[in-house]
Amino acid sequence: MKKFLKTVSLILTLLFSLGVLAGCGSEPAKKSAIDQIKERGKLRVAVFSDKPPFGFVDANGKNQGYDVYLAKRLAKDLLGDENKVEFVLVEAASRIEVLEADKVDITLANFTVTPERKEKVDFANPYMKVALGIVSPEGAPITSVDQLKGKKLIVNKGTTAETYFTKNYPDVELLKYDQNTEAFQALKDGRGAALAHDNTLVFAWSRENKGYVTGITKLGELDAIAPAVKKGNTELRDWINTELTKLGEEKFFHKDFEETLKPAYGDSVNPEDVVVEGGAIK
């Protein structure tokens, strides 16, 4: 305790003197990014801790999920042991920061590639893809967008589903909700004919809620989900890309799907709608 307080007070004193030194901060000597990881003996990966089935912590406190499965494999191939990975738990809002501040080597947190994010981090090739999915009651399934004309469709505010339908199908009436739970409840109450959201989410939901089917599994533009590294860390990015190509040959992500996503999605989902092998979306 004494030592801790000492450290804290030392840090405080240091901080106050920082204002003066702020201008002189210099970059540490550049070492190969991969050598640094090997020297440390741990691959630091940012993952989600509450977004099943992609990244979550199970009842025994272990990290699990589609992203975690990949992270362990990367550690195994880079450092020879799948346990040589240190999971740094992140929130959606801090996924870029942890890379910029060098708190992790790779972010594997269901990170969708967008032009804005590309300015701040470097994305490797994708390992997963999302599109929109539409879930509807089994009794009155919606299997094509044309069936929605003149009917009400439930969406979440601020999601790709909302933008997509406002732009492309203005004659579909939208019912908008803030929260996922509200939106799904509205579908159960019969307030709309169907609900549109990320296909991965509606897959998982329709499996747990009997009487509903995902009539449309792939709609709109495909969004890619990819590992991200710190801007300028091309060495690590290139290594991940080679790794993804190699993993593609052994159909690694199909195995990943079987292990982590299938228990949540069931047989109703075709892995080809979600999984990306070899880093290239076909």
Partner: peptide, 22 residues
Amino acid sequence: VLIGVVEVLKVGQQIIEVSILK
């Protein structure tokens, strides 16, 4: 929790999210 410290509330959210479907 926003800087990655897992305290009691975050553990709670982790448990909820894992069990919410069932």
